[in-house]
Design a protein around this nucleic acid. Structure first.
Lengths: 343, 343
DNA sequence: TTGAAAGCGCTAACAG
DNA sequence: CTGTTAGCGCTTTCAA
């Protein structure tokens, strides 16, 4: 490993001069700068991150807690991680995957302290409120994606607006009897989506077609199926159903098909997330796309701007977008459909 | 941050003694050891990883290149990463996510050299042969998951045996006209699966029902659909189709359904991978499960046992297992089905 | 069994 | 503009 010392020797200057060149200090003559740079390049100099971290008391490492229970959501989370990583990289930061060591009882914050890490991005399907607090207590800034709790610095899709987008789209298609399949009732994210539905039906003066007490915490196929079944039993008529996830929507479609309905001819179905599966279902799923690229980017920028004295930021909400595929359809008014029948 | 120095002062011993205690050296009296340990605990001592890495010229960091083009396979890769991470963790290692910095022209190996990283696990859907060589040239050991090329130290499912497992299962179900939908013809993994099919039909003296020139490099739904279509046009009769991925298998099912076949009553379909989607298709997919837990574990152990002088290992092959769901069925002999018709 | 001293590779005052 | 010096937190001879 080539050191600053070696470069200094060959260039006939001192270590500090080399250091200044390498760190782009202005107080070095052009001539010296060139010479040093050339020799450094020739020798294939690579700075020693440990030494720098040691002396600067600050590393160029961002911690990431990535604990995602295996599931479809993974694809969304890993897309965000990738976007986050690439942004961190472009800012000269490296990503370390944080974890707890059960055996050695090493906590997350210890890893951070040990590696001089100042900020941590939390991507988790579990409640990490304790860890978040612990990290903050140790002077480490955190940002939490889709927190399940009232995080002091959360980032997520603007779920309220996103669900409204879904509902307005169905409304504009002419649907008025719009059912709703909620996700988790205990997560912030899930509550926001439900609130949007409640707000919407009130505003538009529509019937509220959903089953209040059901908690689809798993966002699973079966939960989608069962909730749809209940919905169908409870309410006479449904034009459309807005679901809180793509997988729930698939469950809804299966249930409707089993009961002899055609999607989208009889009922329109909206998903949420735009996972890859929404491309391979039959019919392909109209849904709401969460913008993983932007979330990763903003998360990174925010975290880099935070520091131990400025550890919290107001909640960050990222805009989602509508993706129209084949599970939704304009409602044909009865008059028109009657006309058609006569043709 | 508490330092060794501080502990030494409070314990009335020297730094070196503290260091010896902390590193479990034997030549310290029990009394001193206890005292030091207690004070360290009281003070909440956390070792400075940079300082240790600097002086030992070796970090406890493993690099991971994780570059997976967005797709269903992601779930498999991320499961492996998770298993790998947890094993590394239990061995006292931390994971760093490696990457190239386009802007600053920083290469993977530079990250490694800079952080004193000795080994790298490559999880990538791209050809990383150049990078693998580059890393090895810099004295960094690598292990590559499912390499697309002839890697010097690959780890993967035993794809030959795994596909054989699939084929034998179909055979035991009574199927004799067994079609095959290959994946990529240019990857090692894809070739192994094809070879298994070729080997199998020859051994059992069965008709070879596959389309040689098709390269389903994307393993996509559409490719599965189209290949099935060609298969159906080309061959009179098919009892079953063994596919090289779950997504290809889904494409096959859609195609068969569109042509009026019932899966599994008319044709049995085998997937490969056991992605989560295989649980939510209709019918649910019988498939081959790749053992991500074991792969991650063995990968980690192997990498930790490698070092700059011992940089290559023979190919590591992990056993896969059969998962039976609803897309496969015992073949009813014509006599029996005829009998049924008379009932 | 303990401690003094040197040094890992680098940066940052500060003096010249 | 350049160099001297000290020191980041730790380990490791080597001497006591």
């Amino acid at each position: 490993m080539v050191s600053v010392q070696e470069i200094a020797n060959l260039a006939n200057v001192s270590q500090s001069t080399v250091s200044k060149v390498l760190n782009n200090y202005p107080d070095v003559s052009e001539k010296t700068r060139k010479k040093v740079l050339e020799i450094a390049k020739q020798l294939g100099y690579v700075p020693n991150a440990s030494a720098i971290s040691l002396v600067k008391k600050k590393s160029s490492i961002i911690g990431v807690i990535y604990e995602v229970t295996s599931g479809f959501g993974n694809l969304f989370f890993s897309a965000i991680l990738e976007s986050f990583r690439s942004n961190a990289e472009n800012n000269g930061y490296t990503i370390i995957l944080l974890s707890q060591n059960e055996e050695k009882k090493k906590e997350y914050w210890m890893h951070c302290v040990s590696h001089n890490i100042e900020s941590v991005f939390i991507i988790s399907t579990k409640d990490q409120s304790v860890i978040e607090t612990e990290l903050k207590n140790h002077g480490i800034a955190t940002l939490t994606l889709d927190p399940l709790y009232a995080s002091s610095s959360p980032i997520s899709t603007d779920n309220f607006e996103a669900m409204l987008l879904s509902l307005h789209y169905l409304y504009d298609l002419g649907h008025r009897a719009i059912g709703f399949i909620q996700g988790s009732l205990h997560s912030y994210v899930g509550k926001e989506r439900l609130n949007a539905y409640l707000h919407f039906v009130k505003e538009k003066n529509l019937p509220s077609l959903f089953i209040p007490h059901i908690d689809n915490a798993l966002y699973s196929l079966q939960q989608g199926y069962d909730t749809t079944s209940t919905l169908l039993n409870q309410f006479d008529h449904l034009d459309a159903i807005a679901c809180c996830s793509d997988v729930l929507a698939m469950g809804a479609i299966y249930c409707l098909q089993d009961r002899g309905y055609h999607v989208p001819n009889d009922i329109s179905i909206m998903g949420f997330d735009d996972l890859r599966i929404s491309e391979i279902t039959r019919p392909r799923l109209s849904t709401i796309r969460q913008d993983s690229i932007t979330i990763g980017k903003i998360a990174c920028e925010t975290l880099l701007s935070m520091n131990s004295s400025n550890q919290s930021v107001p909640p960050i909400l990222i805009k989602a977008s509508l993706v129209v595929r084949n599970s939704t359809k304009k409602k044909e008014s009865s008059i028109i459909s009657t006309l058609y029948e006569f043709q």
